[in-house]
């Protein structure tokens, strides 16, 4: 079947199977920044934004994206670079496998929550796992990113 939606602002048409998930559609079409960490919607690695809200692309049928705006980290390069600067300063970079998903979630959070508390930040990102950093460095970096107006 054909599905049409916007990826990072560009109109795209994809030929997909009815039971195909967005993660596979994107990866098969060379959006390699979207990656898999699990099969059970538990890790957040595959996060993309749909109409600005973080969703797990591994469990979203591509057909459901019809007519929507899908954003991958390629669509928020400026913010990703900004956040990368703070990660670098805090030594929060490790394997980086979770980083694009965290950039997307933080980008959405910045638009959704006004002056969030530490607890609100943790709650917003609770589904975005990282096995390397121990989270503390990321948290410091994310705070700094949120403060940039």
């Amino acid at each position: 079947m054909k599905v049409r939606f916007l990826v990072n602002g560009e109109k795209k048409t994809f030929e997909v199977k009815p039971d195909e998930y967005l993660l596979d559609t994107l990866r098969n079409n060379n959006y390699k920044s979207v990656r898999r960490g699990c099969e059970t919607s538990s890790c957040g690695i595959c996060t993309v934004l749909m109409d600005g809200m973080p969703v797990a692309s591994c469990s979203l049928l591509t057909a459901k994206a019809e007519g929507r705006h899908i954003t991958t980290v390629e669509g928020i390069q400026e913010d990703a670079e900004l956040l990368a600067g703070f990660f670098g300063r805090e030594g929060a970079d490790q394997c980086g496998y979770c980083n694009p998903s965290i950039a997307l979630a933080c980008y959405a959070m910045k638009r959704e929550l006004k002056d969030p508390t530490d607890e609100e930040i943790k709650a917003y990102l609770v589904g975005n796992l990282c096995r390397c950093s121990g989270y503390s460095g990321q948290h410091r970096a994310i705070r700094a990113y949120l403060e940039v107006k």
Partner: peptide, 17 residues
Amino acid sequence: GIPSVDGRGLMMGKPAY
């Protein structure tokens, strides 16, 4: 504590893995 040499590219989603 200089930033890691690869952190920026990875955050920006470059194919790498």
